[in-house]
Amino acid sequence: MTDGPDAGSNLLPGLAAVGLFLVMVLAFAGASFPAPQGFGGDANVTASIGYAMFDIGNLGDVGAEGFLAAFLIVAIVLDVAIDGAVFLAKREEGGSVVTALTDGGRDLLDRSREGPNAPRSERGRDAPRREGGDE
């Protein structure tokens, strides 16, 4: 375990967090806001979010800005993130990827070499786990 009970070392961070919370609560309690405007009883908020996300005119019941550029940028960021995650997660042994391409613990590379009707490899789910293996 990396997070054992250690009340002494948690005291200062706990006080800091509670202190920050109290400061924020005092600031918010002293602030004044007008009554919430809300969206109206029959406004379709979900459709309005969709129109705002794709920047489609003023079709929504509730006003909003256009977010088409942000939508495209976030799409690219998510694409980069999944590429980065696969890059970080893969492991190579002998020049070939061994852990990014798996099917429920079975190596797809082994299966493709053996053919579709071949029995499961010894790393398969139905095979006993090897002692000391790090798969």
Binding site: F39, V45, A52, M53, L78, A81, L88, A89
Partner: peptide, 30 residues
């Protein structure tokens, strides 16, 4: 968003969730 009767905040929150997902993907990889 509710305070000002405008869905800009809700739309932006969706983008924040997408960025959080990207962050988690990289974080889990790390």
């Amino acid at each position: 968003s509710l305070q000002w009767g405008n869905v800009t905040g809700q739309t932006f929150a969706l983008f924040t969730m997408a960025l959080a997902a990207a962050e988690v993907a990289i974080g889990i990889g790390i």
